[in-house]
């Protein structure tokens, strides 16, 4: 399998009032297409920072990230945005749904922004798989945490991105809902051949992953 995501010498420094904090200290990474990769480590170890740097959400202080051979941070802001909505999908711990739009609008938003119409059959399939077909007219505020996360997964999957980044997607959910959510996410990713990168503390999720990156104090200490 070919490498879809490559990071070289990633460093991230946060400037605070008490001095600089080095969240990433020269991370190198190669990720193959279609794998499920778990990023784990203790709180404050730099997992989320790594995910944000890999996904283009937060520019690293140093280093390079390439997706399919293209340097992510060489893009302009608009091009990066377009690249993100076509190639990447995100699932956040806080769901990050648009509160002013209903479930259906939220799911279809990345496609709408790209000027495309969703594939109705695929839309039906996803919402059915995620069990939210009856909630399409509801607004995020009217849904439970688990339901909101499923909407976020549907939004992420519908555009058929090559890469899915999930930042502690089950962190706000109870165990059973969390397991269900992860099962749905992994099954979707497997079904559509997507590369899944999940930041998590959950050992159960780590067990499910094809590859595990353990990070400590901004350095990758274990990569399988």
């Amino acid at each position: 399998m070919s490498v879809i995501l490559q990071a070289r010498g990633l460093c991230k420094v946060y400037r605070t009032s008490s001095g600089d904090v080095r969240a990433l200290k020269g991370v190198d990474l190669d990720l193959e297409e279609g794998v499920f990769c778990a990023v784990t480590g203790r709180s404050g170890s730099g997992k989320s920072t790594l995910l944000h740097a890999l996904s283009g959400l937060d520019r690293p202080t140093e280093g390079r990230v390439t997706v399919d051979g293209a340097d992510l941070y060489s893009y302009s802001d608009d091009r990066m945005a377009a690249f993100r909505r076509r190639t990447m999908g995100f699932v956040f711990q806080q769901y990050n749904l648009l509160e002013d739009y209903n479930v259906k609008a939220n799911i279809c938003m990345p496609l709408k922004l790209d000027g495309k119409k969703p594939d109705e059959a695929f839309f039906e399939e996803i919402t059915q798989t995620l069990g939210i077909q009856g909630k399409l007219r509801k607004y995020p505020g009217e849904l439970s945490g688990g339901e909101q996360q499923r909407v976020a997964i549907a939004r992420c999957v519908l555009a058929k991105p090559k890469l899915i980044f999930a930042d502690e997607p089950t962190g706000n959910l109870d165990r059973r809902t969390g397991e269900e959510t992860m099962t749905l996410l992994t099954s979707c990713a497997t079904k559509y051949g997507q590369t899944l990168i999940v930041v998590t503390h959950n050992p159960e999720i780590v067990k499910m992953a094809d590859a595990v990156i353990r990070i400590e104090d901004g350095i990758v200490v274990q990569g399988e």
């Binding site: 802001d77 608009d78 945005a81 377009a82 995100f90 956040f92 648009l98 002013d100 922004l113």
Partner: peptide, 18 residues
């Protein structure tokens, strides 16, 4: 609300022009 919405829009790939 605006901050959150704009950030989510940007996160899911809305360009500045959009």
């Amino acid at each position: 609300r605006q901050v959150h919405n704009y950030a989510v829009f940007r996160g899911i790939g809305a360009s500045g022009r959009q």
